[in-house]
């Protein structure tokens, strides 16, 4: 005689509406769609850059279409959301122990934010934004 194991029926396509934290998980998951698409755009950009000045300037002009502006705005939101959640997770993913004590989680995440902001400012500076 064997007992039947408990199998909970989980709807495969709508399970994440059950709890707010599942929704937060899924909202982070869908950022990968935008970042993946943006990476493809970067590869296309490299192709245009390698094809010469006219091709590159055509690519920059194409970036200015309304659809591209909306797409890039969504990518920016997705990228910042991915970055913030990634840095918030670092304190759980790589706890740091010094001697007997663990370094407070906020310090680990905070250090990532500081490096992120500094790196972004350096890139913006060298790209001639300011």
């Amino acid at each position: 005689m064997s007992r039947n194991p408990l199998v909970r029926a989980v709807p495969p396509t709508s399970w994440f509406f059950r709890q707010p934290r599942y929704l937060r998980y899924m909202s982070r998951e869908i950022t990968s769609i935008f970042i993946g698409a943006y990476c493809v755009l970067l590869v296309v950009g490299l192709q245009r850059l390698s094809a010469g000045q006219t091709a590159w300037e055509g690519f920059l002009l194409a970036l200015r279409s309304p659809a591209s502006i909306v797409f890039q705005f969504l990518c920016l939101v997705a990228a910042v959301y991915h970055a913030a959640t990634w840095f918030n997770a670092t304190q759980k993913a790589m706890p740091l122990q010094i001697g007997e004590n663990f370094v407070p989680g906020n310090v680990i995440s905070g250090a990532h934010y500081v490096v992120w902001i500094l790196l972004s400012l350096v890139v913006l500076y060298f790209a001639g934004v300011f």
Binding site: I35, Y38, L42, Q72, C75, L76, A79, V80, H82, A83, W86, F87, H112, V115, W116, L119, S120, V123, L124, A127, V129
Partner: peptide, 11 residues
């Protein structure tokens, strides 16, 4: 992605 993509998108 976390460190580099946001600033590249900004550019």
């Amino acid at each position: 992605i976390a460190f580099c993509i946001p600033v590249i998108v900004v550019l």
